[in-house]
Amino acid sequence: MTRLLGVLLMVAALYAVDMISFPKAMSLDNHQILARRLGYYGVLTLGVGALIVSGGIDLSIGSLVGLGAVAFGYLMTEKHWPPLPAAAVVVAGSVCVGLFHGLLVTRLRLQPFLVTLCGLFMYRGLARGLSNKTINLPFESVQPQAEWLRTVLVSGKTLGFPHILWLLAGLTVLLVVVMHASVYGRYWYAIGYNEQAARYAGIATDRHKIAAYILCSTFAGIGGVLFLLEFRSATPSSAGELFELYAITGAVLGGCSLRGGEGTVLGMILGAAVLPLLSQICNLSEHIGSELEYTVIGGALLMATVANELVTRLSLRRARA
């Protein structure tokens, strides 16, 4: 609870600083930008967050986003597929990638860090192999339906909120139910804390771990589709670069422990909101500038981690007293 409160305060403070310091940040347009970036990182953060809770990690998210975006564009521009089947193939492919990771981690007992590090290289390479140039989608001419999909999933507005935020809200509700009300989430937490104890309790730990990898990769694949719809172009060598680290940062800021077992869905969403705010403050500020953006992000993560450690120790001491 304290952790959730902490990240909530952090988001509120950053938002306040953003709004008070920069008058142009208060515009409706700017809020639309923030909301769309939140929607985007949010999806990836939820996926990796659930995986981290179960004790896993995925470094290949960014590359998978890139591969997903490029494959989605490739199918539509080169193969002239309609957007829905193309998106479906991308998402189905991501499911397979997650399954692949999960099987390697559980059956061969490989280290998750290593498996997904290999994935990071492999999927980036595949994206570049698929297309050697940036894929541009002048949607109107190539795929009128794609423009429709873009409106439905990303840019359209209902009740003033962009659709990508509604999409994120939907996935959040889904994940809240899975993580906090269903047996699957309960198993992930138990496995994350103590896999052996979960196994001794008669839980098919391998199966549940694989499910977590599939969830993470699937969300990354959805992220790839959203990427192309949002930006209308995807460069094979750079689309989605570093996104895995943004997603992991968001999850950790939101209360996930890389040791597993800890974190809440609401925390993950709030953690995902920190990065767009921070980066906007850096970009708008004359003192910081976009050059130092990464330093600020790293510093914020470090501060949050230190604060969390101190709070944990304090509350543990209180529980024992």
Binding site: V177, A181, S182, V183, Y184, R186, Y187, Y189, A190, Y193, N194, Q196, A197, A198, Y200, A201, G202, I203, G261, E262
Partner: peptide, 27 residues
């Protein structure tokens, strides 16, 4: 092997018995 130390008494007692305490996989 026997306990998830960080989790509560209730969750530990419940862990192998979720099949008895859930309906449609909801706890």
């Amino acid at each position: 092997f026997g306990l998830v130390l960080e989790e509560s008494v209730q969750r530990n007692l419940g862990l192998p018995n979720l099949d008895l305490n859930s309906r449609f996989r909801m706890i």
